[in-house]
Design a binder for these strands. Structure first.
Lengths: 165, 165
DNA sequence: TATTGTTATACTCTATAACTATA
DNA sequence: TATAGTTATAGAGTATAACAATA
């Protein structure tokens, strides 16, 4: 069994946070914040993140952990440095995420045959099973957050997001 | 003068992060991540955040700090608990952000006349001056990140974002 | 009793820098 | 020398819980 990191495993967003930052508090003047696209994105992301945590809390999974598991699963023989590059984080950050996933018994470090400094990352058996459930839950989560958009609107949203930044 | 919190003040995103999570690493299979709207939002937000830090680093300002300053500025007599509610965070988190802004000499706690437990939050003189510059920099940042979109597309993006989550 | 602000504690994500072992 | 992984240290954002002072 995976060791739970805590009873409320992840970033401890409070319950009331869901009411906020997507539905601003009435009576409060948010000034320029209302005009900023960046702020609109931020609010959307906070709402989405809250739903993510609600849906995934039982797996002790966070967005970066899910990204790491997925990338490890899809790229056999991946090394830690490559994982860091793929995720866009520092090597030390990749060590942390791999340590967390190892503690959960989702991921394993395996000696690399050709390089004694390195090792390959791979999912454990429980990790494979967990990733199936997690992926299904995340697909449902993703469908839920985008349920108010038509297929055409979703495509347009993706196109516009890709133009941002 | 505002005390700089550090030479690279904020969340220390590495320079190479800008290359990533919006332009995935070639040769890496991202699997289901590519399909998820939530992931597309996350990548957009990371790109935007990087630009935010590049533009605002000299002010020791982060998105939550900017939100707090703006809300304090626009809502005279605001109390700490109200700031927490407005920002959608716990009271203890509001204490932290106010402490940070106080250390920067941007915000001040003033005794509330009617309630001896509470106080009103307000910008200091340097805080007002800083907020002017910060706001201008953030407006430029916001224009920059959305420069590839037409006005109509921006409106559509806002509409679609509001439907998400 | 309930609320205001605070502090204690904890977890996640991220960074830079220095280090060890190996290439 | 350069690279792979690790550890040490640090900052920021967030949470829950308990507490003193006041309402």
């Amino acid at each position: 069994m995976a060791t739970k990191l805590s009873s409320r495993p992840n970033n401890r967003l409070p319950a009331q946070r869901a009411d906020q930052f997507g539905a601003q508090v009435p009576g409060v003047d948010y000034g320029v914040l209302e005009d900023l696209v960046g702020y609109a994105i931020r609010r959307a992301q906070i709402r989405i993140y809250q739903d993510f945590l609600d849906a995934l809390g039982q797996w002790s999974i966070t967005p970066p952990r899910f990204s790491a598991m997925t990338i490890i699963d899809r790229n056999p023989g991946l090394k830690l440095t490559h994982l860091a590059t793929a995720m866009g984080i520092a090597r030390s950050g990749a060590v942390e995420v791999v340590n967390a996933l190892e503690k959960l018994d989702y991921v394993r470090r395996v000696d690399a045959p050709t390089d004694k400094r390195a090792f390959a990352l791979e999912l454990t058996e429980p990790g494979h099973a967990a990733l199936k459930g997690i992926t299904a839950a995340i697909r449902r989560h993703d469908a839920r957050i985008s349920s108010k958009l038509s297929a055409a609107e979703l495509g347009e949203l993706r196109r516009l997001l890709a133009l941002l930044g």
